[in-house]
Design a protein around this nucleic acid. Structure first.
Length: 648
RNA sequence: GCCGACAUAGCUCAGUCGGUAGAGCAACAGUUUCGUAAACUGUAGGUCUGGGGUUCGAUUCCCCAUGUCGGCUCCA
């Protein structure tokens, strides 16, 4: 007999070799029927898992969120089986569950999967589900024989994976039909559902290309992305969420709200900022400048091109030649700047520095150009010409930890002000690093110390830092859940040496300063692109291109509206007088569609009382006040950046 | 860059099994002067992304290019 511990702390006695299913059955028939997987000693496992003495077991039903990935992974197996039934030459690669769904990669020599194939595959999957196939886990006893079998069947990807996992007790999952025959199998660690019949609500979404093992040198496979949920309601809700998210896409809103455009005759990845979005940018840049001055930064400007030799010194020609724009004028080679650092470094070098005047914090809204590969371009979030809110901090080795702390605060203050959430990643020393081990260790410890002291949770990307230094990245998420690099803080042990930077220390000796690269927004393009999605195009008043629309009800109210118009405009409010001979309802609707925060309606009553009727985009009619009162309120809303709002 | 899909009026989209296109909104003109999300009538607007090919004839079929979209890869 064995004893197992349940989540409530109780101990259950079972026969030797009992499985999770037996345990479930010993508790209740209903639980046995509904159990789909288990958590055994913290690991997700099949209900067929044989329990040992003292195991801690939590039985998972479909109610448990942890069961969802089991469902999805099993659905992936069913999809792979369906694909192989329909396309017998299909070879399977890998098919994991991912956030919000799963995928499976195939190599199909004689067929290119098309969107129209997806319903056919779905139908085949439904058949497999109906067949009530059992997922049976089997240990691979003779690994070499199994590899040979995979090879004989042409399953070269499975053979390759099995070869690598030969030492890790590989297991197969056999799909058995009702009569006990093995109808399909896959090399897999599991876990899986007890049977295919547990799968009810799934949808195949898209076909895509993906390199085998994510390596560009390898063959490109065909990937099907799909998702699965326990109920149709959850699936429908998920699909609806996707649809809703698409409406927030900054590329869609760009047209609707006249924000920006990208023109073929200008070039890919080059943004035309229309007047509306330029207002948003201008407001953000003004905020940026004010904050930088407050926090001890110097703001500078540098040219957009420099002679190629500068980029030899910096090393960019060597590392990023493929991604830079070159031009030749009067037999002299120039480069369109891909970074601002060399300019800031040269400004640092313009005079001698003492430890007394460090740190020097040099900031610039620097527009740079990089030749990104065409397939990587994406709206405003991945472009070829963009403005970084760049800064470089030159400091002593004793100062960089406190400088990093200051920057983390700066990033958090800024993103919080916009209500944007972020996740943090710390990347450590790669193999091809420059500099010395003790400096790297100190730097990494310093970055960790800074994050820990602020209770910021972060993931560590081992060996993923730049060759010149470790870094902290802040990731932002767009409307459809894609994550983008936003703020970043990077230590650099390389450029100070390449440019031979120095400062005079206390003892009169010349020392090399530590250099920190950092951006807060990342780039104006990407940040504002994500901001559009964050607000779904409805910018808060301090950023709104048009803050107020004046709606005179008929022509006889226009004269009064003009008075209000000039008063608000003179006070710096972005106000638009809609004096077209359209109905009031029409003007209000248009202003709502343009997402204007406030409308002031003026008819006979308002003209007579010298007042305005405020309509908020969000809250509707807010009642009547004098134009002066409204002005005071909106100025306060703008000044506080939305902390106070009219009508709240 | 790679795999795949797509490209029709300013915008959103329909259409042509090969016989050179249509709607709504927007624009413009006129009528209407209105109380919190669309007044009415009319006018104009398209070498159907570009270049080749097949064909009596191509927006439609084929090829190439460009761009966009979904992914992969990359991202100093």
């Amino acid at each position: 007999m064995i004893n197992v511990k349940l989540p409530d702390g109780s101990i259950k006695e079972l026969e030797d070799n009992s499985t999770v299913a037996d345990l479930a059955g010993s508790i209740s028939e209903g639980l046995k029927r509904n159990s789909v997987a288990a958590e055994v000693n913290g690991q997700i496992a099949d209900i067929g898992t044989i329990l040992k003495d003292n195991d801690e077991v939590r039985i998972l039903t479909s109610k448990d969120p942890a069961s969802l990935e089991v469902l999805r992974h099993s659905t992936a197996h069913i999809m792979a089986q369906a694909v192989q039934r329909l396309y017998p030459n299909a070879k399977v690669a890998i098919g994991p569950s991912i956030e919000n769904g799963f995928y499976y990669d195939f190599d199909i020599a004689d067929h290119q999967l098309k969107p129209e194939d997806l319903p056919k595959i779905e139908d085949e999957m439904k058949k497999i589900i109906k067949e009530d196939q059992i997922f049976a886990k089997v240990d691979v006893k003779d690994v070499n024989a199994q590899i040979e079998e995979f090879k004989n069947k042409g399953e070269i990807y499975k053979a390759e994976l099995m070869t690598e996992h030969a030492e890790h007790n590989p297991t197969l999952y056999m799909n058995k039909s009702k009569d006990g025959n093995i109808v399909w199998n896959d090399f897999c660690r599991g876990p899986h559902l007890p049977s295919s019949k547990f799968v009810k609500s799934f949808k195949l979404l898209t076909v895509a290309g993906a390199y085998w093992r994510g390596n560009e040198q390898n063959k490109m496979l065909q990937r099907i992305y799909a998702t699965a949920f326990w109920t149709k309601e959850e699936l429908d809700a998920h699909l609806l969420r996707l649809e809703e998210a698409e409406k927030r896409d900054h590329r869609k809103l760009a047209n609707q709200l006249d924000l920006f455009s990208i023109r073929e005759e200008v070039g890919s990845g080059l943004i035309l900022w229309h007047a509306n979005l330029s207002v948003v940018r201008e407001s953000i840049e003004e905020y940026w400048r004010t904050e930088h001055r407050k926090r001890g930064y110097d703001i500078v400007y540098s040219p957009h091109i420099a002679k190629s030799q500068l980029w030899d010194i910096s090393g960019h020609n060597e590392h990023f030649r493929e991604n830079m724009f070159y031009m030749t004028v009067d037999e002299q080679d120039y480069v369109l700047k891909p970074m601002n650092c060399p300019f800031h470094i040269l400004m640092y070098q313009a005079k001698r520095h003492s430890y007394r005047n460090l740190p020097i914090r040099m900031a610039e809204l620097g527009t740079v150009y990089r030749y990104e590969r065409s397939g990587a371009l994406h709206g405003m979030t991945r472009v070829r010409g963009f403005t970084q809110d760049d800064a470089h901090i030159f400091c002593t080795p004793d100062q960089f930890v406190s400088e990093i702390n200051r920057i983390i605060d700066f990033v958090d203050d800024t993103l919080s002000m916009f209500g944007m959430k972020y996740s943090v990643e710390l990347s450590t020393r790669p193999d091809n690093y420059v500099g010395t081990l003790d400096v790297w260790d100190k730097a990494e410890a310093g970055l960790k110390e800074a994050l820990d002291s602020k209770n910021i949770s972060y993931e560590i990307n081992e060996a993923d830092g730049a060759f010149y230094g470790p870094k902290i990245d802040f990731k932002l998420t767009d409307a459809i859940g894609r994550t983008w690099q936003g703020a970043t803080i990077q230590l650099d042990f390389n450029l100070p040496i390449r440019f031979d930077l120095k400062y005079t220390d206390k003892d009169g000796s010349l020392q090399t300063p530590v250099m920190i690269h950092r951006v807060i927004f990342g780039t104006m393009e990407r940040f504002i692109g994500i901001l559009i999605e964050h607000y779904a195009g409805a910018f808060p008043t301090w950023l709104a291109p048009e803050q107020v629309t004046l709606v005179p009800i008929s022509e006889r109210h226009v004269e009064y509206a003009e008075e209000v118009h000039s008063m608000l405009r003179d006070a710096g409010i972005r106000v638009n007088l809609d004096d077209r001979s359209e109905s009031m309802n029409y003007k209000i609707r248009e202003a709502q569609v343009r997402k204007v925060p406030y409308m002031l309606v003026m008819g006979d009553k308002e003209v007579e009382d010298k007042k305005v009727a405020i309509r908020s985009k969000e809250k509707g009619n807010l009642g009547t006040v004098t134009a002066e009162e409204f002005l005071a309120q909106i100025l306060e809303e703008v000044r506080s950046k939305g902390k106070t709002k009219i009508g709240e």
